[in-house]
């Protein structure tokens, strides 16, 4: 059942206009990234690599949010859910299948982006190392966490509000990574309060290995595993919350 739903979701997601258009826009942005290098007066390869890796993250998140927010609420609004949930299908399987289908589509999108980005770097003469692929994999995990975030928000609110909340979560998720550097400004109860709020948001900075990869700075295998496990835990939590919300939802 889950595989069936995942398969249909994968096909629907990869054929959606937003998915294809954002990929095309990514390709265009990658081509333009070389301009930054030319302006800088340096050989430009580092700047191009920085931009290419960041574009993968930014466009990946945009694809995740655009596609993820259409998953549950749009199905309710368009009633596509009715013909599915009237079948002998528990709602949790529907949610898990939906997420897995979306995740598969996003992973394919990320792989395509990474391949295109690395090929472009190679063609333009930038040094290409295996660390870029590792950074790409961690970025893909960041995108999957954002897909789970969008799934969760969309179960709780309207698609438009869910999009806004997703982007806010993305900003917060990266901001909390810098929070320890700003903690010295806080006094008394402010510090534990701040820590408590920050702990409620996935720390997306854990998936930012992009800048180090561009400079070919190595990362330990154990560290990669820990970061991927951190992402997997958040995904599991967010999908579970979504299941609880969807199970209680009146359609």
């Amino acid at each position: 059942m889950i595989r069936t739903i995942a398969g249909a979701t994968f096909r629907e997601a990869t054929r959606s206009r937003s998915f294809v258009l954002l990929l095309a826009l990514y390709a265009l942005a990658v081509l333009l990234s070389r301009v930054g290098g030319w302006i800088s007066g340096t050989d430009g390869s580092t700047i191009t690599a920085n931009l290419v890796m960041s574009l993968q993250s930014v466009f990946g998140v945009l694809v995740a949010v655009a596609t993820g927010t259409a998953l549950v609420q749009s199905e309710i609004q368009q009633k596509t859910l009715y013909t599915v949930l009237s079948r002998p299908l528990p709602r949790w399987k529907f949610v898990v299948g939906k997420f897995l289908g979306l995740a598969a589509a996003l992973v394919c999108g990320q792989a395509a982006m990474l391949a295109l980005g690395i090929a472009y770097l190679w063609i333009t003469g930038a040094p290409v190392t295996g660390w870029l692929a590792v950074a790409g994999a961690l970025t893909a995990m960041e995108v999957l966490v954002m897909a789970a975030v969008s799934l969760c928000w969309t179960a709780l609110s309207s698609p438009l509000l869910a999009t806004v909340l997703c982007l806010a979560t993305y900003a917060l998720g990266h901001a909390v990574g810098s929070l320890p550097g700003l903690m010295y400004h806080l006094k008394g109860f402010q510090r534990p309060l701040c820590v408590a709020f920050a702990s409620l948001v996935p720390d997306l900075s854990r998936f930012s290995y992009r800048d180090e990869a561009v400079h070919a700075l190595p990362i330990a295998l154990g560290e990669i595993v820990i970061r991927l496990a951190y992402g997997a835990c958040w995904i599991a939590l967010l999908v579970m919350i979504t299941v609880i919300v969807v199970r209680r939802k009146q359609l």
Partner: peptide
């Protein structure tokens, strides 16, 4: 029991891209 059920909703909509 549910597997023995067929349902046509009012004004049905389906996934666009399938």
């Amino acid at each position: 029991a549910r597997a023995r059920l067929g349902y046509l909703p009012e004004q049905p909509y389906f996934y666009d891209n399938l």
